[in-house]
Design a protein around this nucleic acid. Sequence first.
DNA 1: TACAACTTGATTGTGCACAATTTAATTGCT
DNA 2: AGCAATTAAATTGTGCACAATCAAGTTGTA
Lengths: 143, 143
Amino acid sequence: MNALLLENQVCFAVHAASRALDGFYRRELAGLGLTYPQYLVMLVLWEREPVTVKELGVALRLDSGTLSPLLKRLEAAGLVQRERSASDERSVVVRLTGAGAELRQSASRVPEHVLGATGLRMSELADLQRTLGRMTQALTEAT
Amino acid sequence: MNALLLENQVCFAVHAASRALDGFYRRELAGLGLTYPQYLVMLVLWEREPVTVKELGVALRLDSGTLSPLLKRLEAAGLVQRERSASDERSVVVRLTGAGAELRQSASRVPEHVLGATGLRMSELADLQRTLGRMTQALTEAT
DNA sequence: TACAACTTGATTGTGCACAATTTAATTGCT
DNA sequence: AGCAATTAAATTGTGCACAATCAAGTTGTA
């Protein structure tokens, strides 16, 4: 009984936290014209580029049903460029445009803002990340 | 540097955990014909009923743009019934149908399955819940 | 009482997420 | 070499989430 209530509270807490985070990023990134998932894609690109859609999917654990339209929107916004790989015509390679690369500067303040807005200490954040990581792993492997 | 990387890791961890949880619930609830958000609504109804759309929104922190179509789907599935309140015609009251009430039995095993699948100890879950709750609160209040 | 302000819910539009299917290209096997 | 199996993306369909807007009902107040 206690356990069952707790289950619902924990699951709801994860769900609610995810939405609250999403909402904060929405306000934070509005000026850049990015959504949170788009920001995640840009983070990967700012780190290593070019990158295939497949690689983006592995890094962010998203499939092409999510990435294809998202990348189309980033392309329409002039931030990335897509082209089929010359060496393997099945793959699509994603590159930053000049504007996409420049956006990195404007985005550089975002992490500290978010970090501050969580109201958590560094040690708590590290703990949180570790626990959530284990849970995600376990849930993914569970039948 | 370290902090900024941690920000992205923590935020991604929350996001990924939420999706992993959602995926597990999807498999777990498929037999009942419910999605996770629909299950949350049913939990509220199984606990106290009837309930207005407004009250559901406060409990789950969802607005009518999300709840209206969701409740329509639950109604189409024959699990709930909606009608305008007699005392205040602005409100819509949601009730369980017989089938909706009976579904509670079939759903009673879900919490323990999920709890087991997280792979976390009770104390860790309690911790997790507390930390996420504080973070959600802080993010909601942040500008 | 009459009207303005507010409340409740529905609608519209945008975007994320995922399952299932489709198409095209590549690889492996005989 | 030729064909089956595999792989990469895109597409289609369903559902959640939220912002913005709208319609209808209620409340407060002049």
